[in-house]
Design a protein around this nucleic acid. Structure first.
Length: 934
DNA sequence: GCAAGGTC
């Protein structure tokens, strides 16, 4: 059997289709892995790397004394399967195979993935022939040729990849552990370090430093307005920016009539069509469409999987020869782009454009099939697809051509100029609206003609600091510097954001991000420089070419890292203090309104709040929504009034919740509560806030004397305030309880969250659970509840109130549960029934029940129900049990009938009515009871 | 709990 291994499932599927010819391919789906069978061949796809490098056992614990971060430098490394199912399948087929062909992507990483597969195969089959097929396009001809001309695996090339894996792991893991431990950070706040992420972060930090160090300077731009053929035109002074104000002033003053045309130059300009799309260009284009890098890649992956575009992870900007352009264009001759395709056909260039790079693994990104708007689904995917289609069109269209015009003139002696342009041939611009170039058609001027000088202007401007990086600009820069790959660049940005090293778009570093970069620059500069990647790539080239063994490169790298650790360990205390000091700043938001010491964002478990660093001497604090709504993070904006930084809550996948100034928000939330106190005014709240009383509980704990001073009131008036405030506090507690109750009992739906329901109920006057229990379900429909929901909500509320009352009266929780289960949770109902029945229904002894009924009756000021002894109950019920089941005995006993004699004497009709039991059945039972009682 | 690189 011939086993063929591809890097991914989709390639396996296509290889099978090409090789099978007319033979039918059987696709076998086995959970995570699919394989394809025809003749005596099996084609299976891997999932990229199916194994991962890691340290041998014993290095798991970061804080182990035996294995400190430094020891990772020389720790043994093993490969661990990460895709167990695929590895299992691969080894199962390998045992039976007579030939294995590795057909992974044609690049270094593909060779390494191939070697990983080879090692897995060799572990179970030492003899089978293993060869390697190399193809640069997934077409029938290429694939068939590559398989028939398969060569041995290139172990040197695979080793080059392996050295990268090991160096990245060793440097990344050891430095990450060192820094995190040194700064006392753990769990979700580790400080990560890596060959790609650290230089990328350093670029963002550098840019921020440039912005901070930037000193704006003034400059002046001179323009004048003239008129020709009825149209006003603006001309610029040819000097451009004047940096000297005196010079600008002199030129301005010298700008006078007559204004005479001195020169008219017309030219011709070629406006080249863009190159084919690679991943970076796709991300840049998506960025212009307002799509983030990660989301663009996510949608592109989806378009690829559905067959609309070619593989989206590529560095290639040259179409393969196998792509027949004219043929391919025909795909679009109908559908949404039919008109554009016709235009392209009429404006086609001989050979498509090509970019700087030509690689062997994948073609540039181009549309592989026609899709209609409704095939695609979401708007973003469609925008992206349209962009890819139009870019493809642009790359096969002729260049655009412009006629350029330049009119030089002289105002007295000052030289001015007007430039314009006219499209002679639109070419690719006719189908590619993403980079606009405006035409500016000028009237015809002649040399020597005099123009009117309508006005002149000297505009004062300021030089601007460099701009922060946008995602796409950063990805372009990373590509220029060789950082990361087409598949990973956008992920690096997400990683930096996830570590809270950077924030916002355009991106800026956080204090932590800056502190980490600065520590690394100081003590482990190598890892913050793109040069590390450059050097690594050179070494990888040497290994691939067989000029250097992998071991030599690894030991050199390890030696270098050990040198860095010498430095790091010597300065460990200083690094730790520095990092902790700096990262503490991230939490400080300004002065405490009470004592002036720094206020901090604090977190205990999932609850977070603003607290004073002077605690416990100063107890000022202001609550924030719990961390489930997002982590509280300091912002740059500062509140004018309180001099506190604004705060926002950040949660993955959700827009930021901007709290604003936490003190303003604290005051606002609590003023609603203050206003519930009778007689309270906005003026009164201001007085309270001025005395640093922000909440009702703070008011209550004031004591009447200080409060009377604050308000300028008598002591007794202040006492009344406190009393009323206590009432409001109780009310608010009940409100909170009800909100909790609602969120536990109402299923949230679109447009109807828990808080919406609660707010609606409160505005209807249903402010606590007790009110809810007494409410008429029909009245609750306004709160967006269905009839069934309203009814069950009221029942639940009533049950809860009942249970709370019974508990308060002294019924223990376990027994109470039994009463509730029997439907006797309502105190009124509980004392209205006979203990014998309760006992039968719940299994609780009659004595206990009598005690409980007495407790409840006393609290409700009702007469106590009949008390019976256990013996009397047992004696009475025993004979009846012979003849009747529980379904009959319980209702009878609840009505007080539990002895034969009693039953015999009772009025059958009445009893039937009270218990709901059939009269005939009662009469039957009575006959028996008579007999027994005689 | 760590990197970067594949792929879903």
């Amino acid at each position: 059997m011939h086993l063929i291994i591809a890097e991914k499932n989709i390639v396996a599927e296509r290889i099978a289709a090409f090789l099978s010819g007319k033979e039918k391919v059987q696709a076998v789906k086995d959970g995570a892995a699919t394989h394809y069978i025809f003749d005596d061949t099996i084609v299976m796809g891997l999932r990229g790397h199916v194994v991962e490098v890691d340290f041998i056992d014993g290095y798991k614990n970061w804080r182990s004394a035996d294995h400190p971060p430094r020891s990772l430098i020389d720790a043994d490394i093993i490969k661990i399967p990460t895709e167990k199912k695929i590895v299992g399948l691969l080894q199962k087929f390998s045992r039976k195979a007579t030939r294995v062909t590795i057909a992974t992507d044609y690049d270094t990483e593909g060779e390494l993935i191939g070697k990983e597969a080879l090692e897995l195969i060799r572990a179970v089959n030492t003899k089978v022939v293993i060869d390697r097929a190399r193809f640069s396009a997934i077409t029938r001809e290429e694939i068939i040729k590559a398989i028939s001309e398969a060569t041995p695996l290139d172990f040197n090339l695979a080793s080059a990849g392996e050295s990268r894996q090991i160096i990245d792991l060793v440097w990344g893991a050891s430095l990450t552990r060192f820094l995190s431990i040194t700064a006392h950070r753990g769990a979700d706040s580790i400080l990560s370090v890596g060959r790609v992420q650290s230089p990328t972060l350093a670029m963002i930090v550098d840019r921020e430093r440039e912005i901070e160090a930037f000193v704006p300077t003034l400059y002046w731009v001179l323009t004048l307005v003239t008129k020709k053929d009825g149209a006003e035109l603006e001309a610029r002074h040819v000097h451009g920016r004047f940096t000297d104000s005196a010079e600008a002033k002199a030129a301005y003053d010298a700008t006078k009539s007559p204004l005479i045309v001195t020169e008219v130059i017309t030219g011709h300009k070629i406006d080249r069509a863009p190159a084919p799309l690679d991943t970076t260009a796709l991300i840049v284009g998506a960025g212009r469409l307002g799509i983030s890098a990660s989301y663009a890649m996510n949608r592109a992956e989806d378009l690829y999987m559905r067959g609309f575009i070619s593989y989206p992870r590529t560095d290639n900007t040259t179409y393969p020869k196998s792509l027949k352009i004219a043929e391919h264009l025909k795909i679009f001759s109908h559908g949404a782009f039919a008109g554009d395709a016709r235009y392209v056909k009429e404006h086609m260039r001989d050979v498509p454009t090509r970019g700087k790079k030509e690689t062997t693994d994948h073609p540039p990104i181009y549309p592989t099939s026609l899709a209609a708007r409704e095939d695609i689904g979401d708007d973003v995917s469609w925008k992206l697809y349209e962009f890819i289609v139009r870019r493809f069109f642009a790359t096969i269209c002729i260049d655009a051509e412009w006629e350029t015009m330049k009119v030089n003139m002289s105002a007295s002696a000052e030289p001015y100029t007007i430039t314009g342009g006219r499209i002679l041939e639109a070419g690719w611009r006719g189908v590619y609206p993403y980079s606009k170039a405006e035409e500016n058609i000028l009237p015809v001027f002649t040399v020597g003609e005099t123009l009117p000088l309508l006005s002149k202007n000297s505009e004062e401007k300021e030089t601007q600091p460099p701009a922060r990086y946008t995602q796409s600009r950063l990805i372009q820069r990373m590509e220029e510097l060789g950082l990361g790959t087409k598949s990973t660049r956008h992920e690096v940005i997400s990683k930096l954001a996830g570590r809270k090293y950077i924030e916002g778009n355009p991106m800026k570093p956080t204090i932590v991000g800056r502190a980490v970069t600065e520590s690394l620059e100081h003590f482990a500069g190598t890892i913050t420089e793109p040069t590390m990647t450059k050097t690594l790539e050179e070494h990888m080239g040497d290994i691939a070419a067989g000029k250097k063994p992998m071991e030599a490169v690894l030991s050199e790298s390890r030696k270098m890292l050990a040198g860095i650790f010498d430095d790091l360990e010597k300065n460990q205390d200083a690094i730790g203090h520095g990092l902790m000091e700096r990262t503490r700043e991230e939490q400080i938001i300004g002065p405490c309104p009470v004592c002036g010491k720094p206020l901090q964002i604090k977190r205990v478990g999932s609850s977070q709040f603003i607290g004073c660093s002077g605690y416990p001497d100063c107890t000022f604090n202001a609550g924030l929504p719990p961390a489930t709504w997002g982590n509280a993070v300091k912002m740059d904006e500062v509140c004018e009034e309180h001099k506190l930084n604004h705060v926002q809550l950040l949660r993955k996948g959700a827009p930021a919740w901007k709290i604003g100034c936490p003190l303003c928000s604290h005051i606002k939330t609590n003023s609603d509560a203050f206003m519930l106190i009778p007689g309270m005014t906005a003026e009164g709240i201001k007085k309270l806030n001025a005395a640093h009383i922000y909440t009702i509980s703070e008011l209550i704990s004031q004591g009447p004397v200080p409060l009377s001073q604050i308000f300028g009131l008598s002591r007794s008036a202040a006492e009344k305030y406190i009393f009323d405030a206590q009432g409001v506090l109780g009310l608010l507690k009940k409100r909170t309880e009800m909100k909790k109750f609602i969120s536990a009992h109402v299923v949230p739906r679109r447009g109807r969250g828990h808080s919406k329901v609660s707010t609606a109920l409160i505005s209807m006057g249903v402010t606590d659970i007790e009110a809810l229990a007494k409410a008429n379900p029909g009245d609750l429909l306004e709160a967006k509840l269905s009839e069934a929901e309203a009814a069950s909500l009221v029942t639940d509320a009533k049950n809860m109130i009942d249970a709370a009352k019974m508990k308060e009266y002294g019924v223990p929780a376990i027994t109470l549960k039994k009463y509730v289960n029997a439907g006797l949770g309502d105190p009124e109902k509980f004392i209205a029934v006979h203990p014998a029945g309760v006992s039968l229904a719940t299994g609780v002894s009659v004595t206990t029940i009598c005690n409980h009924q007495k407790l409840v009756a006393e609290k409700l000021c009702r007469p106590c129900p009949e008390k019976i002894s256990k013996a009397a109950f047992e004696e009475g019920i025993a004979p009846l049990r012979e003849k009747a089941g529980e379904d009959v005995l319980i209702p009878l006993a609840l009505a007080g009938v539990y002895r034969p004699a009693q039953l015999a004497k009772a009025d059958a009709k009445m009893l039937a009515k009270v218990t709901g039991i059939d009269v005939k059945q009662i009469s039957e039972l009575q006959k028996y009871a008579k007999k027994v009682s005689e």
